[in-house]
């Protein structure tokens, strides 16, 4: 079975970017091929774990970092005046 041709389709399927003909083709293949089905499930899990992990790690900008931007901007404003 030509599993290779389904590899990239699995990614597009996850993103709902396949048209119906390819969806039908892929879904039929997934119902017959345990390896591709495992690849689909583990790829989906990889994406969801990554998304959740980085959402949990979202942090605020430290106050001193933020102040530095405004400090530098004010230097630029002054230079522009002259």
């Amino acid at each position: 079975m030509k599993c290779e041709k389904y590899l990239e389709l699995i990614s597009l399927y996850l993103d709902k970017e396949l048209d119906q003909m390819l969806i039908d083709d892929l879904e039929e293949h997934l119902s017959l091929c345990a390896r591709c089905l495992a690849l689909f499930h583990t790829m989906e899990k990889t994406v969801s774990l990554s998304r959740t992990y980085y959402k949990q790690r979202h942090c605020k900008v430290p106050r001193n970092v933020s102040s530095q931007i405004f400090y530098h901007l004010r230097i630029i404003y002054k230079k522009e005046k002259f």
Partner: peptide, 19 residues
Amino acid sequence: EQKNFTDVPDWSNDPRAHL
């Protein structure tokens, strides 16, 4: 990609696949 493809355990329901 060859390696990815020949060797695909389904660990998606493994209890360790958790944050």
